[in-house]
Design a protein around this nucleic acid. Structure first.
Length: 294
DNA sequence: CCAACCCCCTGAACGC
DNA sequence: TGCGTTCAGGGGGTTG
């Protein structure tokens, strides 16, 4: 479920608690929580190693180990990570428990069981999919020129493009809607139909919306634990996601819902126009079939 | 290359 | 109350 801001927060809460600690024991409640290598090998390779630090790439969490290996975790929809003392009551849906030095446990719980761990040994070729990710929203290389270059010829809906992790890493369905609202672009618009100013608004919105939410989701370890690893949903801050039928916070028009690329999308029909208001640069033959629907 | 569909799972919310 | 349906914020795979 979590997207970039939530994963970043999980990393920020978890890293200081486990940094420097040694993994003394690994208990897998479900073996299929390990994607790579074979579960027994994973346990053997991880046991005895110390965690030197954590990182994030897109929605992937990274745990750097003292032998140069890297443990990777993707929370997918419902994964939760908790750092607790061993006597702390067990969570429902616990899938893996890492016993750490200093009487602490790193626990992974995951209702829907989509979450996965990988272990990459030092120098091992990536098999997590991280290597296919596009730039982070805050990368200097993510410019409107680059985005237009990358997507300008695509007829896919711009919302679909935003959710494509190979384009930009870390955006999911929630922030996809929020970004498009901030950029005043309708999710259904074909990427190829965006104007220069729209590419610029979109690029700015990607950075600013993600930055805003990363800053807002600043939760302490105590708060996080109180919420059992789910207390990062800052719904009050979301302007359109999940607010289908509510008035637009900017203009008051009724927010609408549409399905784009199979994902539910909410937008403001007035702020996010179906097409550019300015004269769209006419390109020969490209968008021929679009008859002009009013 | 791309849309559409299926799959992986479980539980909450909703309609009857 | 009970039961069936639909939906959920992730991603990978196949098909046409």
């Amino acid at each position: 479920m979590p997207e970039l801001p939530e994963v970043e927060m999980v990393k920020n809460v978890t890293a200081p608690q486990i940094r420097g600690r040694r993994i003394e024991k690994v208990a897998l409640e479900r073996r299929d929580v390990i994607a790579h290598p074979a579960p027994d090998d994973f346990v053997e390779l991880v046991t005895g190693r110390a965690v030197t630090g954590m990182g994030r790439r897109g929605k992937f969490l990274r745990f750097f180990l003292d032998d140069g290996a890297e443990m990777v975790l993707h929370l997918r929809m419902t994964g939760r990570l908790l750092v607790v003392p061993p006597e702390f009551p067990a969570e429902k849906h616990t899938r893996a428990v890492f016993s750490l030095s200093g009487r602490l446990q790193l626990r992974f719980a995951d209702l829907r069981r989509f979450g996965r761990f990988w272990l990459l040994q030092k120098g091992e070729k990536d098999c997590t999919g991280m290597d296919k990710l596009g730039p982070e929203p805050f990368d200097a290389g993510l410019t409107s020129v680059w985005l237009k270059e990358r997507l300008g010829a695509s007829r896919r809906a711009v919302k679909t493009c935003l959710l494509d992790q190979r384009v930009v890493a870390g955006i999911g369905n929630i922030y996809g809607d929020e970004i498009l609202f901030a950029a005043r672009i309708r999710p259904t618009r074909a990427a190829s139909s965006l104007s220069r100013p729209e590419w610029e608004r979109l690029t700015r919105a990607i950075r600013e919306v993600m930055r805003f939410h990363v800053e807002q989701i600043d939760v302490s370890a105590e708060e996080f634990l109180r919420g059992r690893g789910t207390e990062y949903r800052n719904t009050p801050l979301l302007k359109v996601y999940g607010r289908d039928g509510d008035p637009c916070p900017v203009c008051g028009a009724t927010l609408q819902r549409a399905v784009v690329g199979g994902r539910s999308s909410v937008f403001c029909p007035r702020c996010q126009k179906r097409r550019e208001t300015k004269v769209p640069s006419l390109r020969q033959g490209a968008a021929e079939k679009m008859k002009d629907v009013r």
